[in-house]
Structure formats: C-alpha cells, structure tokens
C-alpha cells in the first residue's frame, strides 16, 4: 500500500470528511489526516508550519463552499505562502457549476502547486488517482 505522510481535509461537512477519510484508509496508508471546517482554520495551521519550517502536508482536499473563509479565499492565501515544494490541492465540491471549474483552471495556471478538481461524491477510483499523483 502506498504511504502518504500527511493529508489535510478542509470541509465544513462532517459526512464528507468522514467519507474521504474512509476512502483514504482503504486506498493508502496515512497516519496523519487533519480536518478543518473552514479555510481560515486551515490557512492558520499551514502558515504556522511554514513559519516553523516543519513538514507540510502532501495532499490537501479542499471544499469550496464554506463559512468564514471559503475555498477560493483559502487558495488565494495559500498561493501567497512561500512553499517551494509542489503540493497537490484537490478541490472537492458539490458544485457542478462550470464557472467554478474554470476558476480552478485559472488557479492551476498561476501556481506550481498541483491543483485538481473533482465533484462530490468522490469514489474509490478517483481517490486512487488523486493519491497516485501525490
């Protein structure tokens, strides 16, 4: 089984977080999965890691529609962080809006990070694909 050190899930929906965790544990091995219920909490956490120069997560699952700081605002802040490594940010949204997909492409072009886009619900095949890249 593939081993991934550290995964972050940013989603305000407890069921989604549960689902992603469940899918992940059946696909790869990971001992460190963190969940954040909005972008603000996640960016605070990541900023601290950057400041302390400790290990960053390898893979981030990002919901778009969240209170306080939504997925887009998170991305905006995340791209500003001085991170040299390419981190996989997988947008997972229930939105099937074309605008959102286009917007994700726009961010993809702006960064060295690896940004992918998936709609809910995620299935095992997609999780395998995502984890394969990371």
């Amino acid at each position: 089984m593939k081993m991934i050190d550290h995964i972050c899930i940013i989603d305000d929906d407890a069921i989604t977080v549960f689902g992603i965790k469940k899918l992940l544990t059946s696909t790869i091995e990971c001992n460190n999965i963190d969940a954040f219920s909005n972008g603000k909490l996640a960016i605070e956490y990541l900023s601290e890691i950057v400041a302390n120069k400790t290990k960053l997560p390898d893979l981030i699952f990002l919901d778009l529609n969240m209170p306080i700081m939504d997925g887009w605002e998170f991305l905006e802040e995340f791209l500003k962080l001085p991170i040299a490594d390419a981190i996989t940010v997988n947008i997972v949204t229930s939105s099937i809006n074309k605008e959102d997909r286009d917007k994700s492409n726009f961010y993809k072009c702006r960064t060295h990070h690896n940004i992918t886009y998936n709609t809910k619900p995620l299935n095992k095949v997609e999780i395998e694909k995502i984890t394969d890249i990371a």
Binding site: D13, T16, G19, N65, S94, S95, N97, K120, P121
Partner: peptide, 21 residues
C-alpha cells in the same frame, strides 16, 4: 439556482457516498 444546486447536490452526494460504504 446555485443554492439549490449546491445544497441538494451536497446532500445527495453524501447519500450516494454513504450508501456506497
């Protein structure tokens, strides 16, 4: 429309996922 789409979809996605499990 966005609200409907997003809210209904997010719930149904959850159903679908949970049922799969």
């Amino acid at each position: 429309a966005h609200i409907v789409s997003h809210n209904l979809r997010s719930h149904t996605a959850n159903f679908s996922m949970l049922l799969g499990f």
